[in-house]
């Protein structure tokens, strides 16, 4: 590791800047958290109270009483984990292919992949639903997972990242007689950990928060995921804001845990030992 001498003034300025953005990032979230502990009559108080005068667990209790948490939580875990695992794996494979393989029409094919994210998702909603109906995938885990696995965003990101890995490493492995599969597992994956960690977080977040698809695909409540189950509570006009905030807090807690867990893969992936610059 490189050691750099840094002046104390620079340290203070840098951390001050970071703390300002930290506040900007966290304040809306903090209000959400604080509101989730507020009882009726305290939500619309002005000036706002950051710490509720009469903090209550009622919103959380009501949530747990009015909805069955077990099944939706399990559904969310199953769907998000499988989607993330398969999506990251396929994206790394395809990213490697698009970055390092050499074949005709590679760029055209890649542009086609990229083209799929350029069409707004809303417009393909009905055709995809009809397709899943035809494939008898309604109300199944596969119906939730399959359409989300191939993710052009992830493929594109992995392609960009892997193209930054020096060709020399791959050539050297090839000299030793390695095939593409060996290179993928022994060279590409170990070096791509930071990027894989990044798309793991994104895919998991996206899948976990996704809530239109699980709702549309479910033909009964047993296939509801956590965000869908939480959002069901609440009337047309009588939106209970405190309970909604409590629901959101419950939904994002697992995400924060996953994020912390994935952190350690953000360690430096590439150490170019034995490689000449």
């Amino acid at each position: 590791m490189r050691k750099v001498k840094v002046s104390p003034i620079e340290q203070i300025v840098v951390h001050l800047i970071l703390i300002i953005w930290l506040l900007i990032s966290v304040i809306p979230f903090a209000w959400m958290l604080s509101t989730s502990f507020k009882g009726p009559g305290e939500i619309f108080i002005f000036p706002p109270r950051w710490i509720p005068k009469n903090p209550t667990l009622k919103n959380y209790k009501d949530l747990f009483q009015q909805m069955n948490f077990g099944r939706p939580f399990l559904n969310s875990v199953v769907v998000s984990l499988s989607t993330t695992f398969l999506s990251v794996l396929l994206a790394t494979m395809a990213g490697y292919g698009f970055a390092k393989f050499n074949f005709k029409n590679k760029n055209t094919l890649f542009l086609l992949v990229l083209g799929t994210v350029m069409v707004p998702g809303q417009i393909t909603m009905i055709p995809v639903f009809l397709l899943l109906t035809k494939l008898s995938l309604l109300n199944t885990y596969w119906g939730l997972i399959l359409p989300a696995i191939a993710n052009a965003f992830n493929i594109f990101f992995m392609r960009q990242f892997i193209s930054g890995i020096p060709d020399e490493l791959i050539e050297a492995a090839k000299m030793d007689g390695a095939n593409e599969g060996w290179i993928f597992f022994k060279v590409i994956i170990p070096l791509s950990k930071p990027a894989m960690a990044a798309i793991t977080i994104f895919t998991f977040t996206g899948s976990w928060n996704n809530f239109l698809w699980p709702l549309i695909i479910a033909t009964d409540e047993s296939m509801y995921t956590l965000p869908v189950a939480v959002s069901v509570l609440g009337g047309q006009y009588t939106e209970n804001i405190a309970m909604q905030m409590a629901g959101s807090v419950i939904v994002i807690l697992p995400l924060i845990i996953v994020f912390l867990f994935t952190q350690k893969y953000f360690i430096k992936g590439i150490t170019f030992t034995g490689l000449k610059g």
């Binding site: 494979m93 292919g97 393989f101 086609l112 992949v113 799929t116 191939a150 052009a152 599969g181 993928f184």
Partner: peptide, 15 residues
């Protein structure tokens, strides 16, 4: 092997 699975899935569910 490497690109095929992604392409097939994108073909079905996106294209």
């Amino acid at each position: 092997t490497f690109i095929g699975p992604s392409i097939i899935l994108l073909l079905i569910f996106m294209l």
